[in-house]
């Protein structure tokens, strides 16, 4: 049992507030990704959970125990670092065994657990090598094996895949998911890569400016962003935001009419590029195409709606040309309405 409760954690560096009252609960065995652009405070939060930084105020509770003032080694967790931090002067075996050795485990137990972790990460064949002789991907595996060998209640990962090339990253991502699912470890995973977060996590906490903007399952975050930032950060292409006039519950763009929440505020229509489809007869929301990019699986159309920039995803065989005006139909259930002033989503009518 190791759930993690992050309770109103604040971190200040001098006058700079890196974290502003962040609260988050991670359930036992859950995989939560902290996702956000660089400088959003995600790594700071992870280091506070690990005990490598001290929070200015707030509490960290792991498995019911308040660990806020404990040193890292007493928190019962393991961590994978961005640059792996695999010890260069030890063999792969000794690296993986490090945590067990610190726990003064018997040699037979060390051997058994190291071999199991090594088998899980497919590094059995180079246990007697030194890390300098390994590739980046292999070192990454050693770092993960070192963390899993101690069978931690909590696993923290700080951008563990960001130093790998794209193909290897994809491969490791899939493998990591399988391995961690099997281990059932409560995991907090820091990344700036939304595909990693979407692919791996049970829930994603999107962070921005030292705050958690939204927390939810990958689908929730994607389909119903809580703020303009989340909509714009998640998804490729990012969500389009079109300023519209909403009067008496209806927003009109061209000859299209969409039901909108009647709040009387300035608002923006948040529209995902793939949630719009080309209407057969040119009716609907008018979209002026400027650039057509064939991406293989789809066409990426860049242009404008009502003079405002927008990106739309179309089927790969669609017959469209730059300079053309097409009509878009939109499912009202799949759009997001954003309050222009606060940047927050407005509840659907």
């Amino acid at each position: 049992m190791a759930d993690i409760v992050i309770d109103r954690v604040v971190k200040e560096f001098g006058t700079f507030r890196a974290l502003q009252e962040v609260s988050l609960t991670v359930n036992d065995g859950e995989f939560v990704a902290l996702l956000g652009p660089s400088g959003c405070g995600k790594t700071t939060l992870l280091r506070i959970i690990a005990g490598l930084e001290t929070q200015t105020s707030g509490r960290i509770v792991i498995g019911g125990q308040d660990v806020s003032n404990l040193v890292p080694r007493k928190r019962g967790l393991a961590m994978v670092f961005q640059n792996y931090a695999v010890f260069p002067h030890m063999t792969v075996f000794e690296n993986v065994a490090f945590g067990l050795r610190m726990q003064k485990a018997q040699q037979a137990e060390v051997k058994r657990k190291v071999e199991r972790a090594a088998a899980l990460l497919h590094i059995e064949s180079y246990l007697d090598r030194y890390p300098a002789k390994l590739s980046g991907g292999q070192r990454q595996r050693v770092a993960v094996a070192r963390a899993l060998a101690v069978e931690p209640a909590v696993l923290l990962m700080d951008e563990p895949l960001s130093n790998l090339d794209a193909l290897l990253r994809l491969e490791m991502r899939t493998e990591l998911k399988a391995v961690l699912r099997e281990a059932g470890t409560t995991t907090i995973y820091v990344t700036h890569d939304q595909t990693e977060a979407m692919g791996l996590a049970d829930r994603i906490a999107v962070m921005y400016g030292g705050k958690i903007e939204q927390i939810g399952s990958p689908l929730e975050i994607y389909a119903t962003p809580a703020t303009r930032f989340v909509g714009g950060f998640i998804g490729s292409p990012p969500m389009n935001f079109i300023k519209v006039q909403c009067s008496q519950g209806t927003a009109r763009i061209g000859d299209a009419a969409l039901p909108c929440p009647a709040t009387g505020k300035d608002m923006e229509l948040g529209l995902r590029g793939e949630d719009a489809s080309l209407s057969p007869n040119g009716s609907g929301i008018p979209f002026d195409i400027r650039v057509v990019e064939p991406m293989g699986s789809h066409l990426l159309l860049t242009g404008s709606i009502d003079g405002q920039p927008a990106r739309i995803v179309a089927p790969p065989i669609a017959k469209v040309n730059p300079g053309e005006r097409v009509g878009l139909t939109v499912d009202p259930a799949r759009v997001t309405w954003i309050d222009s002033t606060t940047g927050r989503a407005i509840a659907q009518p």
Binding site: R73, M79, F81, A85, F87, M102, Q103
Partner: peptide, 13 residues
């Protein structure tokens, strides 16, 4: 790099 010492600290040293 300070990560070596930090990693050791996390793993109980």
């Amino acid at each position: 790099p300070k990560e070596f010492s930090e990693a050791a600290e996390i793993f109980g040293a």
